[in-house]
Amino acid sequence: MPAKGVMPSPTRTPGASVATEEHHAVVLDGVRRVFAVAGGRRLGRATGTAPEPVVALDGVSLSIARGSVVAIVGPSGCGKSTLLDLVCGLQRADAGHVGAVGQAVLMPQGDTLLPWATALDNAALALRVAGTPKAQARERARTELEALGLGRFTDSRPDALSGGMRQRIAVARTLLSGAPTICLDEPFGALDAITRAEAQAWLTGTLAREPRTVLLVTHDTEEAALLADRIVVLSPRPGRVVADLPVGLPHPRRATDPGVVAVRARALDALGAAGRG
């Protein structure tokens, strides 16, 4: 995309032209995102220092197949979270196009559960926001939590739940939005290794039960290799796609499977090469 910097009127067009191919749930085409950050001096305007633009993403093009799990890995600050914001319509691209078929719902970093609400009411939040009456939303949330093996936590408030359970409730809340595409930002990043492995296995089972298109941002190549059908590696800022690795391994996977180890090694190589470049 040589002309990406000068593309006019950047838009996010849900279900529109850019995502025409039926098997694509999300399409990014030459996406660029720039943040204006105040210059070195505090009173930039007064002293005549122009704000210094920071390019978060540059020339990112991706087509994400419906029902696939795509891991986005990259060093911190490479624009991974920005990419999810763009897909979910929380930010607009400065150039290029972002298209999503149907709604894409974000699970922000950290569990962002509401501390005053029970697990049940937290899970029901997406439905409540969508206008479902309280009783009905709770009933559906209860059914979903039970189906996902979280039924015994329904009446607990988040402060009574372990980190792993909180993340699962947050994933359940995201699924209950009914959106065909869900964007998970470091869903298990704050968990210890054992809890994380359990949560990953749980997510694999959950997605087998309820297939969705998933964008999974992670800094953990092992997590990417265990969960994803495809791994997209971004370079340090400005984030560009430096590797696009199909995984093609059957589930369930273990971290020690030769296939997983090999894919992980390729992702790490790509990260390393991007970091040096």
Partner: peptide, 29 residues
Amino acid sequence: TDPGQRKLMAGLGASRWQLLRFVEAPAAL
């Protein structure tokens, strides 16, 4: 109120009123 919770609500397409009703008001109680 917590920026993560705001982002969550924005991502769910919550209205200004829903943000107040579900997040800001309980957080301020």
